[in-house]
Structure formats: structure tokens, C-alpha cells
């Protein structure tokens, strides 16, 4: 019986092997580099050379750095904003677009909102600087047309984080919308028919049929995005920030970039990276447990 099972499943296990090997090679082995977080690391001595062990000194050094808590706060603010709004907007949009009747219109809207996802921030940042310019940008021209003062979205500490959040949502919501639309299309039309016979209007259908049908995928996406709680988006911020908005825009990743790559402070930079991973793991784990307890959600 047992032998039979092995015989039957062996080829399947063998198929996993190459993938597993790659994961071990590229995801698990490099984790050995974590030791750098606890060392006064000198590259010339080698990864496994006679490095000086400093215990938690790198962590203490980083957390005691002036401004570290501002950076942490900026990161969480921007990352959480992106998570929350980035979760809600595609859901709302998918439901709305699902109700649209004209097929051609539906498809073209879907494609157009999906488009920015493929542009890199290097390019988009240039475009954003232009359209958000207080003197010549189109957004501020509209604001001025309504008689308001122009807003310096990218140059003002009070608006910079929100600009990061909304521009990121704008770039990525098309992608999320596609996922939710696919989910909606798997809902059995009979349920809609049944609900309309029971006298449910559009709103009631959305609330009682569409949203419950999307529940699992919403929980999954929300769960996965929780891992990004300390990822405020390096590409975007690096291309858009500057000394004037360091106060509200400097985040952990840009900080690590300056620390690790520009100043060659490998120990502290690794310590911050490790800290980020640990926090992400805790969040994902906690959220998974909560989803399991309260929403009866499970991956396997």
C-alpha cells in the first residue's frame, strides 16, 4: 500500500526537484548572508572569513540613528495607504466594470487602466513631475480653473506621501481589477437569477452575491499584500523624492540604499533588511491566522 503510493507519486516528486533545487540555491542559501547583520562586515575578509561579531550592535546603531523613526513612520504610512486603497479601488472598479453592458467599451477600459502597470517608474516619474507641476501641469491647471490655489504635490511634505499612495494605486489598480473580474466571471449566473427572482436589486446582488463570491480572492490578495507593510516602493520614491521632501518621503528602502550602496555600510544595511523580513513574516503569519480563525480561509 505504502510502497504502491510511493511508486505512483515518485515521478511527481522528481518533477518538483529542479524547482526545489532552484529555490534552495537562490532563496535559501543566500540567507546565509544574514550573518552580515551581526558582524562588523569587511568584504575583503570574506563572507566566512574572520569577521568581528558585534551581536545586536548594527540594530542598535540603525535604530539609534537620528531620524530613523521618522523614516519608519513614513514607510508604514505610505505602505499601509497603498495596501488599503490599493485593495479597495480595484474591487470597486471590478464590480462597476462588471455591470457595464457594452463589451467593446468594457474591454478598452480594462486595457487602458491596465497600461500604466507596464511602465517603469523611471518613465512614469518624468510624466508625473510634468502633469503635477504647480505652474504648468494639467492637474493644477484644473485646480486653478476652479479658483483654488495650485498644490505642489511633489514638493510639499504634507502632500508628498498621499501623492505616492495615489499615483501607485493609479499605476497598479488595472492589474488588480483584472484579477477580480476573472473571479466575478466564475460566479454561477444561476445565483444571480435566483436572487433577482427573490426580488434583489443591483445593490443587493452586489452585496449578497458578487462580494461573497469574491471573498476568498480578496482575503488572499489582502494577505499577500500585508507582507509589504514595510515596502513603500523603492523605484517610485527614489525617482520622485529629493532633499525638500526627505522629511515625509524618505523610507526604509531609500535609506538602506544610501546606507548600503553609497556608504558601503553592509552590516547595518543587512540588519535593516533582516528587520524588514522579520516584520513582514510576522504580519503575514498573523494575518493568515486571523483569516483562518475568522474567515475560515486556508491556503491548503
Amino acid at each position: 500500500m505504502f510502497l504502491n503510493r510511493i511508486k505512483k507519486e515518485l515521478p511527481l516528486h522528481l518533477i518538483i526537484l529542479p524547482g526545489l533545487a532552484l529555490v534552495v540555491l537562490f532563496s535559501y542559501l543566500p540567507m546565509a548572508g544574514i550573518v552580515i547583520a551581526f558582524q562588523d562586515f569587511v568584504p575583503a575578509k570574506g563572507l566566512f572569513g574572520a569577521q568581528k561579531w558585534v551581536g545586536g550592535e548594527n540594530f542598535a546603531y540603525v535604530t539609534n540613528m537620528p531620524g530613523f523613526y521618522t523614516i519608519l513612520r513614513n514607510t508604514i504610512y505610505i505602505a499601509f495607504g497603498k495596501m488599503l486603497i490599493g485593495l479597495l479601488v480595484p474591487i470597486a472598479f471590478a464590480i462597476m466594470i462588471n455591470e457595464v453592458k457594452g463589451k467593446a467599451f468594457k474591454r478598452s477600459v480594462q486595457t487602458i487602466i491596465y497600461l500604466p502597470h507596464f511602465l517603469s517608474w523611471v518613465i512614469l516619474s518624468g510624466i508625473l513631475i510634468d502633469i503635477l507641476s504647480p505652474s504648468s501641469g494639467i492637474v493644477n491647471s484644473i485646480i486653478k480653473a476652479f479658483g483654488f490655489q495650485p498644490i505642489y504635490f511633489l514638493g510639499d511634505n504634507s502632500t508628498f506621501p498621499l501623492t505616492m499612495i495615489f499615483s501607485d494605486v493609479w499605476k497598479e489598480f488595472g492589474f488588480g481589477t483584472v484579477i477580480y473580474l476573472a473571479t466575478i466571471s466564475t460566479i454561477d449566473p444561476q445565483i444571480y437569477e435566483a436572487s433577482s427572482i427573490d426580488g434583489a436589486g443591483k445593490w443587493r446582488q452586489i452585496w449578497h452575491v458578487t462580494l461573497p463570491g469574491m471573498r476568498m480572492i480578496i482575503v488572499l490578495v489582502a494577505l499577500l499584500s500585508l507582507g509589504n507593510i514595510l515596502n513603500a516602493g523603492f523605484d517610485q520614491i527614489f525617482n520622485l523624492y529629493g532633499p525638500a521632501v526627505y522629511e515625509s518621503g524618505d523610507v526604509i528602502d531609500t535609506f538602506v540604499y544610501r546606507l548600503g550602496l553609497l556608504d558601503a555600510q553592509f552590516g547595518p544595511a543587512t540588519a535593516v533588511g533582516l528587520l524588514k523580513s522579520v516584520v513582514s513574516t510576522l504580519f503575514i503569519g498573523g494575518a493568515y491566522y486571523a483569516a483562518y480563525r475568522f474567515a475560515n480561509y486556508r491556503v491548503f
Partner: peptide, 21 residues
């Protein structure tokens, strides 16, 4: 220099920008 320059460079640029604007 290794220890402080990341913080200091940021501080310097931030302050000089603030003085100018």
C-alpha cells in the same frame, strides 16, 4: 565617516534646500 555620513549628507541637503526655499 562611514557611520555618520548617510545621516549627515541627508541633513545637509535638506537644510540647504530649506535655506534656499
Amino acid at each position: 565617516m562611514k557611520k555618520y555620513s548617510a545621516t549627515l549628507l541627508k541633513f545637509e541637503k535638506e537644510m540647504i534646500t530649506k535655506f534656499i526655499v
